[in-house]
């Protein structure tokens, strides 16, 4: 077995070890690779940056623990931006109840950090059954649809939500999702009520979501850990997303090298035969 044949039949476990090293080592030896800001990330940042303290952003944490690594950095970055700009936020988990346990403690922690008052600066609604009916209901009667927040307080009794009647009172809806939830927001909130929608999605789905961005159905898009890292750069608060981007870049380099070597091995051994 010559070199190229050995390369072609490389034990997958060697690949795993090299990828692991490519992911772990950058946390100890930083090269400071730059993170370029994409226009779709900048669009969300600019939109929130131009909101006033009376505006409300509705964030739906439509995700579960499987994609926590990609979407929680986005959630934290967007909440930080809104709190810094004194923009009010209403947080929910319209599409996925598993998001409640992921989103609520982080929202509380950030609210404490920025000294925000519950009910005045932010509200947490949690999850309720029937996402499509919820999204449509919010366009007709926001308070009637949700009725209470996550802690069973009537939305009429909370200063922030008492003023929200429908999507006209919500400046932007952001769906953070590892599923098709953002499409549901487009179909039920944008198409029917012309609500402004932005999406933060896992990288797996990013390529499929660009047509919605191009069609103007989304005002902006955060794609995977890269999107989170870009947003963190924009708000000058590097965190989980930025920390992971160097590891991502090095592991991509390793994978590209493996693809090149694998193809070289294939063509060289075919040439010999």
């Amino acid at each position: 077995m010559n070199f190229w044949e050995k390369l072609e039949k490389l034990d997958r476990r060697i690949i795993y070890i090299i990828i692991t090293l490519a992911v772990v080592l950058p946390f100890f030896f930083r090269m400071g690779l730059p993170i370029k800001i994409s226009p779709e990330t900048k669009a969300i940042y600019d939109y929130i940056q131009n909101l006033s303290p009376t505006d409300v952003v509705f964030i739906s944490g439509d995700y579960d623990p499987q994609v926590d690594a990609e979407l929680t950095p986005m959630f934290e970055a967007i909440v930080r931006h809104c709190f810094e700009r004194n923009v009010k936020i209403v947080v929910s988990n319209v599409y996925n109840p598993q998001g409640v346990g992921l989103v609520e403690p982080r929202l509380k922690k950030l609210a404490q950090e920025y000294k925000k008052v519950y009910g005045v600066d932010y509200v947490f609604l949690g999850w309720k059954y029937g996402y499509s009916l919820l999204i449509m209901g919010m366009g007709r009667d926001f308070k009637g649809t949700w009725q209470t927040d996550y802690y069973n307080t009537s939305l009429e009794d909370l200063p922030l939500t008492s003023k929200i009647n429908n999507y006209n009172d919500i400046a932007l809806v952001i769906s953070l999702t590892g599923s098709g939830a953002y499409v549901a927001w487009i179909y039920y909130a944008y198409v029917q009520f012309k609500a402004k929608i932005a999406a933060g999605i896992t990288a797996v789905m990013a390529a499929d979501s660009y047509p919605y961005l191009q069609a103007g159905q989304l005002i902006g898009l955060l794609g995977g850990l890269r999107g989170a890292a870009e947003y963190e750069q924009l708000i000058h608060h590097p965190s989980l997303g930025s920390a992971g981007m160097e590891a991502q870049s090095w592991s991509h380099i390793a994978i590209i090298l493996f693809i090149i070597l694998g193809n070289l091995g294939y063509f060289m051994s075919r040439k010999k035969k």
């Binding site: 850990l225 590891a247 991509h252």
Partner: peptide, 19 residues
């Protein structure tokens, strides 16, 4: 492009666990 993004997504999850 979809495959590239998929690789990126899977690595992001691994990076999340390493973090």
């Amino acid at each position: 492009a979809t495959f590239g993004y998929t690789v990126m997504a899977r690595l992001s999850l691994f990076i999340g666990r390493v973090l």
